[in-house]
Simulated assay, not measured.
Amino acid sequence: MTQNAQAGGHGSGPGTLSRWFQRRMNARTNTRIRRKGGRVMGMDLLILHTKGRRSGQPRETPVTWFPDGEDTWLVVASGGGNAHPDWYANLMAHPGDVAIELPGRGTVPVRPHRLDGGEREQAWQRVTTAQPRYEKYQRKSKREYPVIRLTVR
């Protein structure tokens, strides 16, 4: 759902208008998840609660998730483009301040763990089997998408 698209600014990050639009769309999607459940385009969504890496302000971002056992979820930091999405940077900066919100379950504190090596490859296979579009997105990017396991604390 989140994009790091630049709107009319210079530099490597999103412009002010793009950030405003992104936050507005995220808020709308979060409201939809809370009211009707989290399924969009055949993918399950959760609301990822993080703390802004610079501002320290709470952030809520709709993110696609994949089951990874009981009380464990996988998320992929795709975000479009060749830069990691803001939510990923926030997650890595403040891993102790992360929670997820699932329809019908409420907010659950989680511990993020970025997967590497064989562990990432196994998880990536499960993700791309469930949603082949992620393989297509990955081929278009110059960076390897991080795969993060979220486990209940």
Rank of each mutant, 00 (worst) to 15 (best):
A123F: 12
V110G: 01
H94C: 01
P103E: 07
G11E: 00
M92T: 15
R24P: 02
R54K: 13
I100K: 00
V127W: 05
A89Q: 03
T107C: 10
P109V: 04
S12C: 01
R19H: 08
V127P: 06
V75F: 00
H94Y: 13
R34L: 05
G79V: 08
S78M: 05
P109K: 03
H84V: 15
V147A: 04
F21H: 06
K136W: 05
E135S: 14
T129I: 05
P109L: 05
G38K: 04
A123R: 04
I148C: 01
T72Q: 12
R143E: 05
G79L: 09
E60R: 15
L115D: 14
N90H: 08
G9D: 13
P62Y: 10
Q138A: 13
G11W: 03
P58M: 00
G11C: 07
N30Y: 00
R24S: 06
P146D: 09
P103H: 15
M92Q: 14
Q57N: 13
T61K: 11
R24Q: 09
R54Q: 14
Y134I: 13
T2Y: 05
V63R: 03
S55D: 04
G69V: 10
G8F: 15
T72M: 12
V110P: 05
G56E: 00
S78E: 02
V75Q: 00
R153I: 02
R143K: 13
G79M: 10
K51G: 04
D116V: 12
W124F: 10
A123Y: 10
P112M: 04
N26F: 07
E135C: 08
T151S: 14
G37L: 00
V110S: 02
E121G: 03
P132E: 10
I100V: 14
Q6F: 02
R120T: 07
T29K: 00
T50G: 05
G81C: 02
R105N: 07
R32C: 06
T16R: 11
A83N: 13
Y88A: 01
P146T: 02
G69R: 13
Q22P: 06
W87T: 12
V127L: 03
P67R: 04
S141R: 09
G96D: 15
P146S: 15
A83L: 15
W87M: 12
D71Y: 06
E144W: 13
R34F: 07
D86Y: 12
R59F: 13
Y88S: 01
V147G: 01
W87E: 03
V108G: 11
W124N: 10
Q22I: 04
Y134Q: 03
P132M: 12
A27Y: 04
A7I: 09
Y137F: 14
L45M: 08
V40R: 14
